[in-house]
Design a protein around this nucleic acid. Structure first.
Lengths: 121, 121
DNA sequence: ATGTCAATTCAAGGCTTCTTGAATAGTTGA
DNA sequence: TCAACTATTCAAGAAGCCTTGAATTGACAT
């Protein structure tokens, strides 16, 4: 993953609706969900949904496949993984706290790790 | 970290100049760098730099402290960590590949992990 | 062939973000 | 106090992004 791809992926993630899409589609696994079902679940107008799905797909975070008259969208875990890896390796590889947050989950951040930095919040 | 903070942090990261800033400041550790030194290193006009530094600080990714007439900026590893953790926990907790990418670094993505998913690229 | 359904594309408008030069605030040293 | 220096704030304009309704494409069933 190069810099421009990582930037495209980060830009794609930096939007509420698209983050909703990722969150909705992740549990659906490789099968994914049809656009219509997504639209109904999230209450989105069709063109708006298409716009955001397309953005995510272009950024390499989603895949699509056509079945009859439906289009099924599913997350591309490698797209997400390499995006996060890019941030980790190019921005914070020297910070053990960041890696710890990734390895152990968000719970760690709310106390344990906080001790090693400044006590903000 | 809640959703709106995560979105703010992702938006802050989704810009070339700001990603450059994170990358430059990370090796500088807690000491950080003075704004003027940053501007000189990256070749940025002062107001432009101020604009982006402020965006990163507001997003919780940078901290600043004043020393004499200089302002030193340094990365806040907890901000970065909790942002990444949010994405991991709310978007891809069911995808082992994503976690693997985070734990092992970017090198893993260019072959080893690729085998478990579809063979794109 | 025709009507219906699913999804995308198009075009217009509004909104936010980014950049730039000028002006301002605050700090240091003579 | 005055000059020099560091950094931020302000205002204006350019550029890009997002939303919405209308129109379009493609697929299925009768």
């Amino acid at each position: 993953m190069d810099r421009s791809k990582a930037l495209a992926a980060l830009s794609a993630l930096a939007h509420e609706t698209r983050l909703d899409l990722i969150r909705l589609l992740t549990p659906a696994g490789d099968e994914g969900m049809a656009a219509g079902q997504i639209a109904e679940t999230l209450g989105l107008a069709a063109p708006r949904l298409s716009f955001h799905l397309s953005a995510l797909e272009q950024a390499g975070l989603l895949r699509s496949r056509k079945v009859a008259r439906n289009v099924f969208y599913s997350v591309d875990p490698r797209g997400l993984g390499s995006t996060i890896a890019y941030v980790l390796n190019h921005c914070c590889c020297d910070h053990p706290e960041v890696r710890a947050a990734c390895s152990h989950g968000v719970g760690v951040l709310q106390g344990a790790v906080a001790g090693s930095g400044t006590d903000k919040t």
